[in-house]
């Protein structure tokens, strides 16, 4: 005798119950595991690390695992997402000395004038009166063209969208910047919003 046919009788109620249990639990475990995966994803994406610069008086929470660079006086700090493509998502804080009668709007006007010299294809899209905590602030949204300086890479230029948020602190303007490729701008903007919620200056 040899067994060519499966000896199991699936019409048997005990076996049918076992099969139904297995199948149902397989679906449940898949849903539960994917749920856990999404929680893990959220915790990794939203993980932050503290940044503190006592000398310039700026502190805040920046995304974990981003590359941090401090280069005063050009900027207090610059955090970049090394995995972002085609443009490394950037959050930056910089300081600019201003006169005693300056206001955030006058600093923004200066940035608008300087923009084309600093960033190729600079184009202002909007200027908004807003606030940061209890302080008056002005937000400027702009775009520019980012080209790779290495000609051998033969990469296509990227359209970058940016925000500069300006608040005054004594005789200094604090400029908080967020930049990303235009396609990823809105998706990654929560990183900047979370930074703004924690920044102290």
């Amino acid at each position: 005798m040899s067994y060519l046919e499966n000896p199991k009788d699936f019409a048997d109620s005990r076996i049918a119950r076992l099969v139904n249990l297995n199948t149902g639990l397989a679906i449940i475990i898949t849903v539960v595991v994917i749920g856990l995966g999404m929680i893990l994803r959220g915790s990794i994406l939203n993980a932050t690390t503290p940044f503190k610069d006592e000398e310039n008086g700026i502190r805040g929470q920046i995304p974990a695992n981003w590359l941090l660079d401090a280069n005063p006086p050009s900027y207090v700090f610059r955090a970049e997402n090394p995995n972002a493509r085609p443009f490394k998502t950037l959050i930056q804080a910089s300081l600019q000395t201003v006169g005693p009668d300056a206001n955030p709007r006058s600093v923004v006007d200066l940035l608008v004038v300087q923009g084309p010299n600093r960033l190729p294809g600079y184009d202002v899209q909007s200027i908004l009166q807003t606030s940061l905590g209890e302080d008056e602030a002005v937000e400027i949204q702009y775009s520019f063209i980012q080209s790779d300086p290495n000609p051998f890479l033969q990469s296509v230029p990227v359209v970058v969208q940016g925000i500069d948020l300006v608040v005054l602190r004594g005789n200094q303007a604090v400029i908080l910047t967020y930049r990303d490729a235009v396609d990823n701008f809105e998706r990654n903007r929560p990183y900047f919003e979370r930074f703004l919620q924690t920044v102290e200056y």
Partner: peptide
Amino acid sequence: LGYAFTIGIL
């Protein structure tokens, strides 16, 4: 865990 609990299980 991240890969197993998302792409892997799906």
